[in-house]
Design a protein around this nucleic acid. Structure first.
Length: 152
DNA sequence: GCCAACGTTGGC
DNA sequence: GCCAACGTTGGC
């Protein structure tokens, strides 16, 4: 089992939106970065646990946990000209972009802010804390996931 | 294949 | 809204 952190802007899609979604499940559309896509396509497996991180908001931080319920398949938003994620270069026969489905597991009882993460020496290796890291999907070590899960 | 210009992310 | 950091694009 692998562990991940996935960023989302809560104004666009929050942990509450995930909790309210049908089957508490959503397809993770709109990833348009090759490294993040490769993580989904090559390494995300059924049952993997995901920290849901709220970015571009105040304060940013970890808002809950989800799990992978469907492994990578073509991101259909890339084929939809009306979608803001439309990519004319992605063909249905050989999709450029992939997505997974994730299901709500829990909302943090205690939202864990970026400041609190930075202040916790036990999780200082988290990739999210690296200066300049903009990757929307990053792997998380099991020990770090477990430390964080206990704090939520 | 280099690299300047541009676009995006995301904390602040 | 600003801007640093990074990824992508495209001329050469």
């Amino acid at each position: 089992m692998n562990y991940w952190l996935m960023k989302t802007e809560p104004e666009v899609f929050s942990i509450d939106d995930l909790a309210k979604a049908r089957d508490k499940t959503t397809c993770w559309e709109g990833v348009r970065n090759y490294q993040a896509r490769n993580f989904m396509r090559d390494e995300m497996k059924l049952g993997d646990q995901v920290l849901i991180y709220h970015s571009n908001t105040s304060p940013p931080g970890i808002a809950g946990i989800a799990r992978v319920v469907k492994e990578a398949y073509p991101d259909h938003s890339a084929f939809d000209p009306s979608s803001k994620y439309f990519d004319v270069k992605s063909k249905k026969e050989s999709a450029t972009w992939m997505m997974v489905d994730v299901q709500f597991v829990m909302k943090a009882k205690k939202f864990l802010s970026l400041d609190e993460l930075k202040a916790n020496p036990k999780v200082k290796e988290l990739l999210i804390l690296r200066k300049g890291n903009r990757l929307s999907i990053t792997p998380v070590e099991k020990k770090h996931f477990e430390i964080i899960a206990k704090l939520l």
